[in-house]
Write a protein that binds this DNA or RNA. Structure first.
Lengths: 215, 215
DNA sequence: CTTCACCTTGACCATACGGTCAGGAAACGA
DNA sequence: TCGTTTCCTGACCGTATGGTCAAGGTGAAG
């Protein structure tokens, strides 16, 4: 049975596996190169080298540089949307916003490249993901604003402007990814340790939750 | 007399003026193009067009693209350092940090391009301004941490980690420049009005000052 | 007027880049 | 085994870019 399961997972796969593995290798390499060099500064050759494939092979899987870039941006966006679930079904701001901060701080640590690519994209006027901003992000934002407003109405936090609270959450959590290099430099050139990351999360959570009068 | 003054201001100038005006035009254009396209995506031709000069003329004033870029980055750094004076000679966090937030929010509004160029530079590992981070910025940071710590010791605010407070200040204020496009999209595609900027400043200041227990 | 330093610029060059393609290898189904 | 689909890749191409240069213009000093 376990044999069958294995076969049925691999069988329709050998070919599919090759494709999936190569796409994965390319996407990972691309995320890093786009983050470190920007879209304009990134070269297909560099991505290919980092992925361990000849450049022509990249164009077999991704028609153009833009296609590849688009996929990288979509990836981080989906990861963030998933993290947003921490927000829902929370009884109040302490649990909801606290969990959201935790989740976003974790992502900043585990996906710093994706965060930078997103930041870069938005800074350049979001040429590729403008539609996402106008649809998915806008809807998501309005939904959370409603939730926060409800918490305010229920007296669970101070009457602050929910929109600017969200901006502060995004800014502060993503800062640890986007400006990670600056933070590392100010930390004697060494990456934050586990303890320092915990300290960062606690500091951010405490300041924010106290700032909105939830604790 | 006024004639003399005018002459004495223009006299040693005709030639100098040309140089200064052209350098200014080039730097302004470069700041915008670097911010919108990134270092790699920016082209000397585009900067030249925006400055209204032939490309060859750019290379007369700035030897290389890197030279030009370096100057742009230094500019915003100095502007921020100036704003830091709001911090000093303040009796406590309400005045000091409040004024610092105000100043940085104003800069985000008036110099969004410079802020983006800086963000881009840091995100790409600060290849050009690493030494600034390790000297000027580190010293400045340590100085303010000491000030904040003193306020904490004097019981003027909660005992939070000063370093992470600074990160939050930088992140939050610069977010309004770096992610201005996203904010504008979420504001029905329209730039923030004067009123909305005031609202943003107040929101940020209130949340931060309450978050550190200063009010 | 002459001189000289500074400014301007069209034309040019070498390079590097994104993308193409043809031909071959490898995997799969029958 | 054979045919077909998928995958692989070295060689190549057109273009755009950063940078150069030589020749000419321009303002000011003597």
């Amino acid at each position: 049975m376990s044999g069958d399961a294995q076969i049925s997972r691999l069988k329709p796969g050998r070919r599919t596996d090759i494709r999936r593995e190569n796409e994965r290798a390319i996407l990972d390499a691309a995320e890093k190169v786009f983050a470190e060099a920007g879209f304009g500064g990134a070269t297909m050759q560099l991505i290919a080298d980092m992925a361990g494939l000849p450049k022509a092979n990249l164009h077999y899987y991704f028609a153009t540089k833009e296609d590849l870039y688009r996929r990288v941006v979509q990836q981080i966006f989906e990861i963030w949307l998933d993290a947003a679930s921490s927000f829902d079904n929370a009884p109040g701001p302490v649990e909801g916003i606290g969990a959201y901060i935790d989740a976003k701080m974790d992502i900043s640590r585990t996906h710093p490249h994706g965060s930078k690519v997103w930041a870069s994209e938005v800074m350049h006027g979001a040429p590729v993901i403008q539609d996402y901003l106008e649809t998915t992000l806008r809807d998501w934002t309005n939904g959370r604003i409603a939730v926060i407003q409800r918490w305010i109405d229920e007296g669970k936090m101070q009457p602050i402007n929910p929109r600017h609270l969200l901006y502060m959450l995004w800014a502060t959590t993503q800062h640890y990814a986007d400006f990670g290099h600056q933070i590392q430099t100010l930390n004697d050139g060494k990456p934050l340790t586990d303890t320092q990351w915990r300290e960062a999360k606690t500091s951010v959570r405490d300041m924010v939750l106290r700032g909105i009068g939830a604790i």
